[in-house]
Amino acid sequence: MATRTTNLYGKITVTNRAIRAVANAALRECYGVAGGRVSFIDVEENKIRMVIRLILKYGVTPEAICESVRSQIRYNVENFAGASVVELNTFVVGIK
């Protein structure tokens, strides 16, 4: 499974693994996040669905952080893969 598109040079395929790597890298830079990773990814007809399990820093507002994590990861992944992220669920699995 991967996103597929074309430009003047030819076909471009971005694998789920690559998308996952971009999302993980973006997650590491998010404010209030101590750790975590993409635990599930699915791509169908260039629509990306993801689940992210994350560990928060102690003392931050989970709701606000999850919202900003979603927006940051979505932005980075869409920019990289050229496909829409249609679903992005976050699970807070720990506090550090």
Binding site: T3, T6, N7, N46
Partner: peptide, 16 residues
């Protein structure tokens, strides 16, 4: 005169 690296996916994203 699209940039060479412009993809159809980018067009879809633009539309969205």
């Amino acid at each position: 005169n699209m940039n060479k690296k412009t993809t159809m996916a980018a067009v879809d994203m633009l539309r969205e």
